[in-house]
């Protein structure tokens, strides 16, 4: 646990979890595979919103890690073909969701490594 925390601190400078280039890639992938249900602006309807109050209540309650979010997306999404994207594509989508929810961009990309992502607890930004 202590090692994991240390690793997280070194992997992500400050609060930055992804890069701008990565979230831009994620946005493209999101619009192709996710927007039909979650909305072009992540606003939801008919599926769950991925931004705003709903995202804060559902994910940023202090009980969810970044890996929880990544796990649900990679194992259950896209709804019609779960697990059909690459790990990197899923990580890019997570980066885009973080950007939309005001998490700052940095110099290091988010890598699809559960051990690292488990050390980040999601919180409102």
């Amino acid at each position: 646990m202590a090692f994991g925390f240390f690793l997280a601190a070194s992997a992500f400078a400050g609060d930055a979890l992804y890069t701008t280039a990565q979230s831009a890639r994620g946005e493209e992938t999101y619009q192709q595979y996710c927007a039909a249900c979650h909305g072009t602006r992540l606003q939801g309807v008919p599926a769950a919103p991925l931004t705003g109050e709903a995202f804060r209540g559902r994910w940023e309650d202090g009980k969810h890690t970044l890996d929880d979010l990544y796990y649900i997306i990679r194992s259950l999404m896209p709804n019609n073909a779960p697990g059909s994207l690459s790990k990197a594509q899923y990580a890019d989508i997570v980066a885009y969701i973080l950007k939309t929810n005001n998490y700052p961009a940095g110099e290091v990309e988010l890598v699809p490594d559960a051990a690292v992502m488990k050390t980040v607890v999601l919180s409102p930004h």
């Binding site: 559902r58 009980k63 929880d68 649900i72 194992s75 259950l76 709804n79 019609n80 073909a81 779960p82």
Partner: peptide
């Protein structure tokens, strides 16, 4: 899946379905 993982507020499927 190889394990059952519960994430609060999400579907607890222990697997997936491709339609």
């Amino acid at each position: 899946e190889d394990e059952a993982r519960f994430v609060a507020g999400q579907q607890y499927l222990g697997g997936s379905f491709t339609w």
